[in-house]
């Protein structure tokens, strides 16, 4: 059963001007639970825009996004924020960890928002850091972690809220080969063992090779 359905989705920048940009163009897609999908395409083809729409971080110009039976376009800003918190995990290209918090506190952040108990937060955060191989770096701030380590903390953070799926936008773009392989192995393992759904936007061949499903975008349109 599809957990995400996109129908006739459009995102047009500079709408109403002489030079509108069709970043996402009549996209119809669906994603099944447990998928390890990669949206690939050249730079500027609309991968990130599509992922942002999927994550409820941006609003489409037209079309529908239905996640687990909920049409997110109809949610209020406040409800959409709560929906994101409880259903979607994000891994950004630039890691986007909160610099003043330690690795564990970064992972605990969403659980704070979910009003989890201190004990539960701590136990889950440490377990997630363990699963990405950073248990011993739990009390270190992001500034003292390497890029690969920061991105692994970001993965742990994305998993913290027990989301239905994780959106990863170019997660390996700033990582070297070893860190990339390490990160992808962790994600692949989480997908296989725990059945976590991953949707990547990437043009990195190392990511594409791992994909169970490839979606190719060109000028905002799905071409394959």
């Amino acid at each position: 059963m599809s957990i995400i359905t996109l129908s006739n989705l459009n995102k047009i920048y500079n709408e109403g001007t002489d030079i509108p940009v069709h970043a996402v163009n009549n996209v119809d897609l669906s994603f099944e639970a447990g998928e390890f999908s990669v949206i690939k395409g050249a730079s500027g083809c609309g991968k990130t825009t599509l992922l942002n729409l999927l994550g409820g971080l941006d609003t489409p110009s037209s079309g529908n996004i239905i996640i687990d039976g909920v049409e997110i376009g109809k949610l209020s800003a406040s409800n959409l924020t709560n929906f994101r918190m409880n259903n979607i995990g994000f891994v950004f290209q630039a890691y986007n960890l909160i610099p003043v918090l330690t690795a564990r506190e970064n992972v605990e952040f969403i659980m704070h928002l979910q009003h989890k108990s201190k004990k539960e937060r701590k136990e889950r955060a440490l377990a997630l850091l363990e699963s990405v191989g950073l248990r011993d770096r739990a009390d270190v701030r992001p500034g003292k972690l390497s890029g690969g380590q920061q991105q692994r903390v970001a993965v742990a953070r994305a998993l913290a809220s027990k989301p239905k799926f994780i959106l990863a936008d170019e997660p390996t773009a700033n990582l070297d080969t070893k860190a990339t392989e390490n990160l992808l192995d962790i994600m692949e393992n989480l997908n296989k063992v725990e059945g976590i759904t991953f949707i990547f936007a990437s043009h990195d061949d190392r990511v594409i090779k791992k994909a169970h499903r490839l979606i190719e975008l060109e000028d905002g349109k799905v071409i394959g």
């Binding site: 406040s78 924020t81 918190m85």
Partner: peptide
């Protein structure tokens, strides 16, 4: 600004 945006993206209410 970026830090605020990340927090809201992760699920923090703006209020």
């Amino acid at each position: 600004k970026k830090e605020f945006a990340v927090m809201v993206a992760l699920g923090m209410q703006k209020k």
